[in-house]
């Protein structure tokens, strides 16, 4: 099972942030994340890990929790960017993200605003336990 996850790792990206651009840059030919068997999917049942980034409104938080419930075990969450790690950059004082953080367990934190694509790949590799030489 762990071998399967290691060699075919499916990612679902949610949120409306600017970090999304940097995350999707990893699909392109310069940083080809598919080399490690990592795929970007669009169905929660298919995904191994949920990437949370950017801003959310009230409905967005409910929807993302729904998505997390629909995912199959084993599952995890990667939080990207200071919007999720700290607070919404463009709406400080909004409690939504902190509510979200209290409801779920976040497995991996990537700081930055936005983090570089390499940092994202680094986090994925660290998550999968692929050694870095």
């Amino acid at each position: 099972m762990s071998f399967l996850i290691k060699s075919n790792f499916n990612i679902l990206v949610t949120g409306f942030g600017c970090c999304k651009q940097e995350i999707f840059a990893t699909q392109c030919s310069l940083y080809d994340i598919q080399r490690f068997g990592v795929n970007f999917v669009s169905v929660p049942e298919d995904a191994d890990i949920l990437v949370v980034q950017g801003f959310y409104n009230k409905k967005g938080i409910i929807r993302i929790l729904n998505i997390y419930d629909r995912m199959k075990n084993p599952k995890g969450i990667i939080a990207v960017g200071s919007c999720v790690l700290n607070e919404n950059l463009f709406n400080p004082g909004s409690e939504l993200v902190s509510q979200f953080r209290n409801r779920v367990i976040i497995n991996m934190h990537i700081p930055g605003c936005p983090p570089r694509p390499e940092a994202f790949i680094y986090a994925i590799l660290k998550f999968l336990g692929i050694s870095m030489q």
């Binding site: 497995n107 990537i110 983090p115 680094y122 660290k126």
Partner: peptide, 12 residues
């Protein structure tokens, strides 16, 4: 330095 990712938030 930009290769940053941590399992635990305290390490940040």
């Amino acid at each position: 330095k930009y290769q940053l990712a941590e399992f635990d938030k305290k390490n940040l």
